[in-house]
């Protein structure tokens, strides 16, 4: 079971503002889903290696040669706020 305080903690970690009513709804929904997925806690997994990917691969490195990357104006083209040089964001902290 997930309670209200856990929902609020996860929402903070996930950088999601949630309304007061949404806290209760999410607590119930997440608890229901977790009850179901907890089926796997009954499996004996001793000695089983985890798979991060389905197709086993070793580290792959691209050739280390310079190449053209995204031009500044293209990178800034879709930005919500820019000064022409970089992205503009509100000041850190909780604001005024």
């Amino acid at each position: 079971m997930i309670d209200r305080s856990e929902v609020l903690h996860i929402a903070k970690l996930a950088r999601l503002s949630i309304s007061d009513e949404e806290v209760d709804v999410l607590a119930a929904e997440l608890s229901g889903i977790l009850d179901h997925v907890e089926m796997i806690s009954k499996l004996n997994l001793a000695g089983v290696e985890p798979s991060a990917h389905s197709v086993a691969q070793t580290g792959w490195l691209r050739p280390d040669v310079p190449h053209q990357s995204l031009a500044r104006e293209k990178a800034l083209d879709q930005a919500p706020a820019t000064d022409g040089e970089g992205f503009e964001v509100p000041p850190p902290g909780s604001g005024t």
Binding site: V89, P92, G93, G95, T96
Partner: peptide, 8 residues
């Protein structure tokens, strides 16, 4: 207007 975290 509640800072960077507020915007996120």
């Amino acid at each position: 207007d509640e800072g960077l975290d507020g915007m996120y």
